[in-house]
């Protein structure tokens, strides 16, 4: 129902009722901000990028057909905005070769207990920053409660099964980095 309303609002924006974009902004600003913040850990930049998403939605409103999910369309736009931001600023990602990291499954019991502790969340956050952007992106999108995997797949431009596999592997890579940071 919520999606239908979102779609209806966006169709009104498309037909010229630009002020309806204000309602969509109020509904989605936090999750968009969260998406960008998880991607770049910079609140100020994230706020600018949220604004860019809505400007771009206005600019390309004619491409919204109302047939698919509005949220998926919005996050596709957000993904493009994020990609352009990195490209324009030529930001180098800190990537580590996760294939070289031992998964250390045997250490899981101890580490899992610690994970809920504050320090471990910080380490996990740090590990997230070290994760490759495309994998980080998959995880951030997968964690959005409002998005089904079918929509995540739509955003990523792949099949639903492929999106799930990507999410799983990104999660394993994140854990590997986390463990590596823990053992240092």
């Amino acid at each position: 129902m919520q999606e239908l309303t979102n779609n209806a609002l966006m169709l009104k924006v498309k037909s010229g009722e630009l002020d309806k974009l204000g309602l969509l902004y109020e509904r989605h600003k936090k999750r968009l901000f969260g998406f960008f913040y998880n991607m770049n850990n910079n609140a100020s930049v994230s706020e600018d990028l949220v604004q860019n998403v809505f400007e771009r939605m206005l600019k390309y409103k004619h491409t919204f057909t109302g047939e698919g999910s509005f949220t998926a369309w919005m996050f596709q736009t957000a993904r493009n905005v994020n990609y352009d931001y990195y490209r324009k600023n030529r930001i180098a990602f800190n990537q580590i070769d996760v294939t070289a990291v031992d998964y250390k499954m045997e250490a899981s019991e101890n580490t899992d207990k610690l994970l809920h502790q504050k320090d471990d969340v910080k380490v996990l956050n740090k590990a997230m920053k070290l994760l490759a952007p495309e994998k980080r992106e998959v995880l951030v999108l997968s964690k959005l409660k409002e998005l089904k995997f079918s929509e995540v797949a739509e955003i990523l431009g792949c099949t639903e099964g492929a999106a799930k596999v990507k999410a799983h592997r990104a999660l394993k890579d994140l854990r590997a980095i986390f463990l590596q940071l823990e053992t240092r």
């Binding site: 913040y37 998880n38 499954m105 899981s108 019991e109 899992d112 969340v121 956050n125 997230m128 999660l171």
Partner: peptide
């Protein structure tokens, strides 16, 4: 066991509120 806690750990990330300026 290895990945489930990591999955839940992501939820604990601290995300600030966007400012009024936005």
């Amino acid at each position: 066991n290895a990945v489930s806690n990591t999955w839940e750990g992501i939820d604990a990330f601290d995300i600030p509120e966007p400012s009024k300026k936005m």
